[in-house]
Computed example of a mutant assay.
Amino acid sequence: MRDVEAGLSEAPRLRVEVSDDRVVATLDRPDRRNAIDQRMVDELHALCADLEADPRTLIVTGAGGIFAAGADIAQLRERTGDDARRGINASVFDRLRHLPLPVIAAVDGFALGGGAELAYAADIRIGTPRARFGNPEPGLGIIAAAGASWRLPEIVGHARASELLLTTRTLDADEALQWGLLSSVHDPEELLDAAHALVDRIAANSARATILTKRALLAPRSDHPTVDGELQAELFDSPDKHARMTAFLERKKK
């Protein structure tokens, strides 16, 4: 896997740890509370390129007890309408969302603005009691345009998403769990262990079946059930399916 730190004159924004079946990417910009700037966006694109070429499950987390306090306001203030149309953050979050294997967001502390939208792009979100989600963009004269307006309603429902985005209030971990924004809550020192336990469960399954399950989940409603049949057809004809089902039947005989 290509080193995303190579060639950068400044300190890298991501710490990337690679294993055989997983990657842990830690947002690491402690002086700016892990705010997402252009350099971090570039490094996330580089990481996505690696994971598209060599799929692994991805865990995204933040350093220093903060997930990401938002986009870098100093950069955001200078962006123009043309920058908005380019979808700088939206494009990388969408690329993360469509990685072949699952993305898990392990959220400790604040996930605000662009940081929240990064978490919304994950397939699974887990957190700590300190996790906080919010989209303060209207208070800054903009909208949450990197996925919140449509991903958040898919996760928590339209009414709850409307409340969060229109009032700009912050959601604590208990409410996030109740709303289904978080799947589980863990003590801070156990958060990454819980994320790795999820990856262990994913890794025990057929990698191809996992990839196609994610593809089915992301397919438009209008493509179902046709897409399900096509994806299943590929798996039904695979040696892996035959081997796994044979092993299952052999275990039942014992």
Rank of each mutant, 00 (worst) to 15 (best):
I202D: 11
R215W: 07
A131G: 04
N205H: 14
D228E: 14
A146N: 12
S222E: 15
H242D: 09
P153K: 10
E154M: 06
L212V: 00
G139I: 04
E137I: 04
L166M: 13
A146F: 12
P220Q: 01
R221P: 12
A173F: 04
A219E: 00
P239D: 01
R221W: 13
R169I: 02
L192M: 09
L218Q: 08
S206H: 03
L177M: 07
F236I: 15
H224S: 03
A209L: 02
L235Q: 00
R169T: 05
L166F: 11
A145R: 10
H196M: 14
V199W: 01
P188S: 15
A216T: 00
K214Y: 03
A161S: 07
S206A: 02
A203C: 11
L218A: 08
L191M: 04
A161P: 02
I143T: 15
Q178M: 12
R132P: 03
R130Y: 12
P138R: 03
L177R: 14
H224Y: 05
H224E: 01
A243S: 06
P220H: 01
A207I: 13
E154G: 08
A194H: 09
I143H: 14
H196N: 13
I155T: 10
W179I: 11
T213S: 13
S183A: 15
K241E: 11
E175N: 09
M245P: 05
K214A: 02
E230L: 12
K214M: 02
H242L: 11
P138F: 01
A216Y: 06
A176Y: 05
S162Q: 15
A219H: 02
A144T: 01
T168A: 14
T210G: 07
D223M: 07
F236T: 14
P138K: 01
T167W: 10
L217I: 06
S222I: 14
L192S: 06
A145H: 08
E137S: 10
A195K: 03
G180D: 03
F133K: 05
V227F: 01
E163F: 06
R132I: 07
T213Q: 12
A233C: 04
R132F: 02
D200I: 06
D240I: 02
L165F: 04
P136Y: 11
I202K: 08
D237W: 01
